[in-house]
């Protein structure tokens, strides 16, 4: 079974800067309509099955809001 990846965005940390969206090679990160307590709309991975686990989103995130989980 090939590996699958999950992108977990911490709703308390995301500031909606969109840097993760720009760097995602699969273009699966978007800004959702869901807002956190500070009023920032949260980043969201729309298609985990397409995620390659490259971690670009997590690396570029200034708020260390993204966790990547690998499932095998």
């Amino acid at each position: 079974m090939p590996a699958h990846f999950r992108v977990k965005v911490d709703p308390n940390l995301c500031k909606s800067c969109e840097l993760c969206i720009a760097v995602c090679p699969k273009k699966i990160m978007v800004i959702s309509d869901q807002k956190n307590d500070l009023g920032f709309r949260l980043a969201l991975c729309t298609d985990h099955s397409a995620c390659t686990g490259c971690m670009a989103c997590a690396l570029v995130c200034p708020d260390v809001a993204i966790e990547i989980i690998r499932t095998e």
Partner: peptide
Amino acid sequence: MSEKIIFTRTEGLK
């Protein structure tokens, strides 16, 4: 099935 966190906040940060 096994899960592994491959990117998370470092212990160097609070």
